[in-house]
């Protein structure tokens, strides 16, 4: 053991003192009364004071210090845990708010799109209605105009026949010199044309 270190130190300076073998370690002692840690008259005062001092220390530790330090540590732990819990709650709240906000934005966007679509639809409908109305009007006008034209045409054609009858009658009159019955002329003409 380490005790061997002692021996040369003892040997170096063991002159005048009484040699004395002490204890199980076999170390040499050379002070009056022996090696201090093994002097029996030193035992009692040390033990008495040790018991007193260690006893008081134990009481102070177990009654005051350790519960206090334990309390501090526990306090800190609960504080940290509750703070973390609170922050987690806040985070959850913030996330919920963000989700609600997004949902809201989505709804509003859909609404806006619907409004846009409706407006477009309405405008398209109106435009279509106006076009059809304009088209029917135009068609009516065209029809009326065509009727007028065909009436004018028939009238004009009727006039042409009369003019032709008159002209034919007068030509025949001039050529033959005889009077011409216009009705008979027309009937004859119709007869010739149909055969």
């Amino acid at each position: 053991m380490k005790m061997t270190i002692i021996s040369p130190a003892f040997a170096a300076e063991s002159e005048q003192e009484t040699h004395e073998t002490v204890g199980a370690t076999g170390g040499e002692a050379h002070h009056e009364g022996g090696f201090p840690p093994f002097q029996q008259e030193n035992f009692a005062p040390q033990i008495v004071w040790l018991i007193g001092i260690f006893g008081i220390l134990y009481l102070l530790m177990s009654r005051v210090a350790l519960p206090r330090v334990g309390g501090i540590l526990e306090n800190r732990e609960t504080k940290i845990a509750s703070d973390l819990e609170a922050s987690r709650e806040m985070q959850a709240k913030a996330q919920a708010a963000a989700r609600a906000n997004e949902e809201n934005i989505r709804l509003r966007r859909e609404e806006a799109q619907a409004i846009g679509r409706d407006a477009q639809q309405k405008i398209a409908n109106e435009a279509a209605a106006q076009r059809t109305r304009a088209e029917t009007e135009a068609a009516e006008k065209i029809r009326a105009a065509e009727a007028r034209i065909s009436a004018a045409k028939t009238q004009a054609l009727g006039n042409v026949e009369q003019i032709a009858i008159d002209a034919a009658a007068s030509i025949i009159e001039k050529l033959s010199g005889a009077g011409v019955d216009k009705d008979r002329l027309v009937a004859e003409y119709r007869n010739v044309k149909s055969s």
Binding site: E41, N42, A44, P45, Q46, V48, W49, I53
Partner: peptide, 10 residues
Amino acid sequence: GIETSFTNAS
């Protein structure tokens, strides 16, 4: 009869 001196150890 028990020595209870206050020593440097104490």
